[in-house]
Amino acid sequence: MKIAFLYVAEPYQCYHVAAVSSALAQFPNMSVTEFVSFPETAQHLEAIRRENNLGGRIERGVLKMPLKAALLRRLRRLDAEREVVMRENVAQLEQFDAVVATEYSAGLLREMGLVRPALILIQHGAGDRAVNDEHLIRHFDLSLVSGPKIAESFLAKRLATAAQTRIVGYPKFDAVSKERCQEPSLAARKPVALYNPHYKKGLSSYGRFLHPLVDAVNQLDRYDLLIAPHIKIFHKDFGGRRRLFESVVGGRVSLDAASSALLDMTHTARASLYIGDVSSQVYEFLIRPRPCVFLNPHGVAWRDDPHFRHWTLGDVVEREEDILPALAQAESRHVLYRARQEQVIHETFGSQPRRGASHRAAQSIREFLRGEFTVAPLPAVA
């Protein structure tokens, strides 16, 4: 069996897939080839395998990169570049028995003419947000998801059937060191409040709440604030957004806009308080229940909306003047949310052991391709 793993987005995606391709490559009669469009992604893949002693013989394929793709990258139109690269490489991918990806947009390969290979999705992230290309899940022959929450969502929206869906856990946990899931270091001067704004227009909080948040942190004098934005904030950006974040750095406020710690759970493990809007990283933070504060400057009607399930896990702030009280009370009010956090984490990542998801995913891919795949009942989410 010849399996292609397709990496046509930034390095964040490789943390969800690297351990799976390594596990699959260790099965007999499985040939694994990785296609990478960003040089940084290859560097992250090598670091993940080195730091976690991941084995398996993996070939490195070469993607054709047309001039249009290079131009789109220079213009920071990375989502558009992704589509151009996929279209250019359909014929090459057609030679494989399966193509594995972690981006919904890989479903476009079917519309671009990919016929022979099975198309397999490894769900990246564990969040609730509605995304524009979610409908492309229908093009995948098999979807591997972290827990019953996402599996039931796929079924309820008729994006996939039970026969096309398998709960395996969260392979990213196998791609980061065990220390990422343990208690944070006590060496920090003050507890760290992690601010993790998303890029989605109409939902992200940094445009309106960045400066009020920094003012509140400085006035409270309880936390060191680490600003760690979703890396897609810097798409279509020629330095303006980075300068905005840099303008508030100083004293107890720091910024990480580029390091691997944005991707490998370093920040979510270290922090004592999570402040954000709609990023799925809140679920990585909550593998150890801790206080959360969510920012809703746009006044989104979120209650009873499953796409904002995570906003039931902490106080939600809609006015500037309420930021300081929310931060001041976050620890004392955590008792109100802890049980709910534990329940939702169980729904998100399932009941299987945290480690081993990559092997379960690899085994599922192997069974599917060999025609040995059995349909297991999916647990319902309350």
Rank of each mutant, 00 (worst) to 15 (best):
Val84Met: 06
Arg73Tyr: 11
Arg50Gly: 05
Glu83His: 07
Arg49Lys: 14
Leu67Gln: 12
Glu46Lys: 13
Glu51Pro: 03
Arg49Val: 03
Ala80Met: 02
Asn53Pro: 01
Arg60Asn: 13
Arg60Leu: 12
Arg76Asn: 13
Lys68Arg: 15
Arg60Tyr: 11
Leu54Asn: 03
Val85Ser: 00
Arg50Val: 06
Asn52Arg: 15
Leu71Gln: 10
Ala70Val: 11
Val85Glu: 01
Val62Gly: 05
Ala80Gln: 04
Leu54Arg: 01
Leu63Tyr: 10
Glu88Leu: 04
Leu54Phe: 10
Glu83Asp: 11
Leu67Glu: 13
Arg76Tyr: 07
Glu88Gly: 00
Leu75Ser: 09
Arg60Thr: 14
Leu78Gln: 03
Leu67Arg: 13
Gly61Val: 04
Arg87Met: 05
Glu83Ser: 10
Arg50Gln: 14
Pro66Ser: 11
Ala70Cys: 09
Arg82Ser: 08
Ala69Phe: 06
Glu51Lys: 13
Ala69His: 02
Thr41Arg: 03
Leu72Asn: 04
Ala80Trp: 00
Ala69Ser: 14
Arg50Trp: 06
Arg74Ser: 10
Arg60Cys: 09
Leu67His: 10
Glu83Thr: 11
Ala47Pro: 01
Leu71Asn: 04
Leu75Arg: 14
Arg74Cys: 08
Glu81Cys: 00
Ile48Ala: 05
Gln43His: 10
Arg73Asn: 12
Ala42Glu: 13
Ala47Ile: 07
Arg49Cys: 05
Leu71Met: 12
Arg77Tyr: 10
Glu46His: 11
Ala42Cys: 05
Gly55Arg: 00
Ile58Gly: 01
His44Gln: 11
Leu63Val: 11
Arg87Phe: 06
Asp79Lys: 01
Leu54Tyr: 10
Ala69Ile: 10
Ile48Thr: 09
Glu51His: 11
Gln43Pro: 02
Arg77Phe: 12
Lys68Tyr: 05
Leu71Ser: 06
Lys68Ser: 15
Leu78Asn: 04
Leu78Ser: 02
Ile48Glu: 04
Ile58Glu: 01
Ala70Arg: 15
Ile48Gly: 04
Asn52Gln: 15
Ala42Ser: 13
Glu51Gln: 14
Lys64Thr: 14
Val85Ala: 02
Arg74Met: 12
Arg73Gln: 14
His44Leu: 06
Leu72His: 08
Val85Phe: 02
Arg60Phe: 08
Ala70Asp: 08
Ala42Lys: 13
Gly61Phe: 02
Gly55Gln: 03
Arg73Thr: 08
Asp79Thr: 03
Arg76Glu: 12
Arg76Met: 08
Lys64Glu: 15
Asn52Phe: 08
Arg74Ala: 13
Leu54Thr: 05
Leu67Phe: 14
Val84Ser: 04
Leu78Met: 07
Ala69Val: 10
Leu75Tyr: 07
Ala47Leu: 13
Leu67Val: 13
Pro66Cys: 11
Val62Glu: 15
